[in-house]
Amino acid sequence: MRFERKVLVQGLGELKGQGYGYLVKITAVDYGKGLTALYFIRDLAGNRDETVEVEIGYDDAWVPTVMDVYPAADWYEREMMEMFGIGVHGRVASRLLLEKWDGVDPPLRKSFQWNAEYRTADNKDVAAARKANTVGAPSERQAGRNAPLPAASAPGATARGPRAAGKKGAARGADDKSGGGDKR
């Protein structure tokens, strides 16, 4: 079910009253147009599951804390804050789980620039070799599979959202949306 952000805590409290007393996970999905925070709750006795979705935008990415309703939410919210950059309001400021994480770019967003910077920064010779097209990471060696597939086995394009403009993205822009044959 979908809740608005402002009724999230109240809604979860009501669900808890109905028996959903166990929090399974809090996570988020980056759907390209915005983030969706997900709250998975469960009724242990009645063996029912419920998923609560809250849609938030990239610029306005915050949710209220649900720790008062579910104390288990503590670490899940910290993980969501760090991996997605979704602020959680109403809780004590806590350390990053990933200490010494130097980037402020949340890793699990689709806009995370991980190919461009993190690989070549460590392995300059890999970057040079990649330019010369001699040797590369395993995904490079599968360059032959990047040929466009026959239409029958690539059903439907899915909206992927902004993806990292990696080193290979420019070369295979046409294939990016198809279902197969693409590595990144």
Binding site: V24, K25, T27, V29, D30, L38, F40, L108, A154, P155, G156, T158, R160, G179, G180
Partner: peptide, 16 residues
């Protein structure tokens, strides 16, 4: 395992 499934790969895999 909560998976948002693209045709050929996971769009998002959330592991609890």
């Amino acid at each position: 395992m909560y998976m948002v499934a693209d045709p050929q790969r996971p769009y998002r895999l959330s592991i609890r």
